[in-house]
Design a binder for these strands. Structure first.
Lengths: 334, 334
DNA sequence: ATGAAAGCGCTAACAA
DNA sequence: TTGTTAGCGCTTTCAT
């Protein structure tokens, strides 16, 4: 039989004190003499005692666990954000249950129910699509990458996002300055704020350069993957021979576009410029060399973890919304 | 104040039965009359009662949670395996705590301690590097993708892996049959069984075609990323002009190699063939078109989840080791 | 078929 | 400064 691990009760007996005292030493609250503390610590160390987080949680009604809702962990951008978050949360004493919703409402609901009965202390939505306010757990929650949907009725939320509009603006401006006059936009659903804001930046850059926004040059995809980017580019190039550049609101879309452009540009010699968003690791390779807008993934992770834990600990937040700077990385495609 | 969610006690009062009876109905054990069951179920549904998993776990000494140890979640292959595992575990009533070790021993140890005090019911190692037998929790454990290290002393383990040797063999054979005679091997550490076995397949194919294995044509990288692949190819091409093909034990390495080859082949016109392993989504794009060995990610996830849960439930395993078939996908690079 | 009650390991009043 | 004690919500004997 597996030996049960040692409990606070046994420790207290071994140290010749009450369990309350041991608890106080462990949690550093209440009063106790230095001698008592030392004695208790010694026994704890000697027997390798580790507090039972589950039992503690039953009392406090909270686990040292947070839930992370992410739409697609196989998207490198989300994987990196998740990784950073988890790393920082762990350092702060929390573990993370990562929930991959695959953008399905039903799955998100079921995950939320699970997280609730799991008694998580907090919740992080990375680019959540639904974030239904009524369904959501009554725990500290932060949003990363995109604003909660307006119809959710969520107010006064904590949000960490990139300067998406700024990124879209910089990318488009760079294309314009390198001579493009007919820039197509390939974007994921623009009701998703991160993508919508990037489009706003695109429009603003056009306007500043005296170029009217042509809705016919915009394609909205219903997924963020290469196949959708490819299809969008195919449609656009087929119908609009004047296109001389692309701004894509995600690198994954840009890869698809690049794939399609690669086909045409060789035979016709047409030069098409292209800029994406996210700066995935593939974008940096010589054979892809995709220009892209880089986001501060590190900051997302650090700020996100620290903010959430502060909220869990009941601290006042000095700031509820963050707009992190982005950086345009120019490569061969622009 | 946040309203505490309803407990089994309140349900029992509402249904006019004892809490024991409610517990029996919920867990479908013990005896109870159909009428009682119906009454209890009705109240449960009406009040939206959800059992408190934490409290249950305090009694049973096990959470409905499993830990997944993964070296690098930003590697698409691992992300996909993790995603599939989580999906299937969830369907079986378990949630997963995903622990990204970044191949660091210390981090793995700390994660294991955390998982232990979290009272996880099981553990999945995806390509674990250390998996220290003494450190490990005394819970059902399975290994995916690679065998536990020999020095860990772990015996009689449950393992789900691809037919790595077969894959290496098929890839190399394809290169040979398309005319290559001097095939370089770029591999991650060969003491990692998945990579070591792929090398074995490579050697066997060479041997069958009467080509002696030349150690000088092999480079072992210390990470699985594009930069390492690039560097390896650079060294090899610089020193061995006879090379006419590459087999890489990971697509990420192959992308790096491709990047380097792309440089040379254009000016010199040298035709270099290339095959990777994993079939990442980028490999399928037109502009990369990397030939690769595809693994059954789906099977990993399904088999892994089912097997682990069976072990947790104390069932006898009909099979402890699985060798899943792989499939060579030929594209432009071969 | 059902209920009463013990207790999982811990925290937090309340006493002393 | 330290101890006693009452639960947190649940499962599980042991009675009835």
């Amino acid at each position: 039989m597996r030996r049960r691990s040692i409990s606070i009760k046994e420790i207290s007996a071994l140290a010749g004190v009450s369990i309350a005292t041991v608890s106080r030493v462990i949690n550093q609250n209440g009063r106790f003499s230095p001698e008592t503390e030392e004695r208790v610590r010694k026994v704890i160390k000697e027997y390798g005692y580790e507090p039972d987080l589950v039992a503690r949680s039953l009392r406090t009604n909270k686990m040292q666990v947070v839930g992370i809702i992410v739409p697609d962990i196989t998207n490198e951008f989300f994987a990196r954000v998740t990784q950073e978050l988890q790393h920082n949360l762990f350092a702060l004493g929390f573990s993370a249950i990562i929930c991959n919703t695959n953008e399905e409402y039903d799955k998100e609901k079921r995950y939320l129910a699970m997280l609730k009965s799991q008694k998580v202390s907090g919740l992080i939505y990375i680019s959540g699509e639904f974030a239904d306010g009524k369904q959501s757990l009554q725990v500290p929650t932060i949003y990363i990458d995109r604003k909660p949907p307006v119809n959710s009725g969520i107010q006064d939320y904590v949000l960490i996002e990139s300067d998406n509009a700024g990124g879209g603006y910089e990318a488009t401006k760079a294309l314009l300055e390198s001579g493009c006059r007919h820039i197509a936009l390939v974007t994921y659903r623009t009701d998703i704020s991160s993508h919508g804001d990037r489009m706003l930046g695109y429009k603003r850059a056009l306007q500043e350069h005296g170029i009217p926004f042509d809705p016919a040059l915009t394609v909205q995809t219903d997924k963020v993957d290469m196949a959708c980017g490819f299809k969008a580019a195919d449609t656009l190039l087929r119908e609009h021979s004047e296109i001389d550049g692309f701004f894509c609101t995600a690198d994954l879309l840009a890869f698809g576009v690049r794939d399609r452009v690669y086909d045409t540009s060789a035979p016709t010699g047409r030069r098409l410029r292209l800029i994406g968003f996210d700066d995935l690791s593939f974008s940096g390779t010589k054979s892809v060399a995709l220009s892209s807008v880089r986001q501060s993934v590190r900051e997302f992770g650090q700020l996100g973890a620290e903010t959430l834990v502060a909220m869990i600990n009941g601290q006042e937040l000095q700031q509820k919304q963050y707009l992190l700077p982005v950086q345009l990385i120019q490569r061969a495609t622009s």
